[in-house]
Amino acid sequence: MTDTPIKAGLSSPAFSLALPRLGGFARDVALRLLPPVITIALILGVWEVVCRQAGSSLPPPSTVLDTSWELITDPFYDRGGLDKGLFWHLIASLSRVAYGYTLSAVVGIGVGVLIGQSTLATRGLDPVFQVLRTVPPLAWLPLSLAAFRASDPSAIFVIFITSVWPVLINTSVGIRAIPQDYRNVARVLRLNGIEYFIKIMVPAALPYIFTGLRIGVGLSWLAIVAAEMLIGGVGIGFFIWDAWNSSLISDIIVALIYVGLVGFCLDRLIALAGRLIARGATL
């Protein structure tokens, strides 16, 4: 808000209206910002008090700041090998996620569309998918290591196989949920297969597809951190495991906060993309 309208309003009755409005705006901001700030402060406070006590196995926040100061302030350093800043570890993990997740988006949407079209295919494959999707990410790792005999493809496969199910299942549900009315419109217009796919099916199923993509990106971030702990190399998961082996508990805590923030950003990114693409697609 600029202060021009308030100055102009000083000598007019509008002044009495402008002030509460400004107050209302400030109050809005305060009501949105204060609760999370207070919550975080409380958590830090309790943590500090609990971990300050003698014999505590975990460091309080003040110690974390103190010992891991370099890690927090300089995420970009690179001393070769595995001794890199958190930025480089996160980039390595994110690039694996990018490969695996892209693959699962393409395969998930493609197969989901095919399956959603056919009741028979749904009946046949749905039980298989429902069982496979409950297999924990790490349980796939030994199998994929055996198949690929290399760590990077294995990690990417684990991401793929973890995140493909929600995309696939949601897409097929979205395809099946296309209202009969839209199908009738397409039939009256005599849309052919490709036209129907582009003009009716994809836009109608888009909200479902993005729900799947959003769940998928969360799962792939969960999977990569766990998988990297086992496969080693550069990556945030291995960084955490390495820090544990070197008893650098503060570093672990800093890394966890980064992992959480990146996961949050990924989720919001997909949600935003969904909103931009599917704008107006909701009824």
Binding site: D181, N184, A278
Partner: peptide, 9 residues
């Protein structure tokens, strides 16, 4: 159609 059946997107 009774319920208009316009494509919302």
């Amino acid at each position: 159609f009774q319920n208009h059946s316009l494509l919302p997107w």
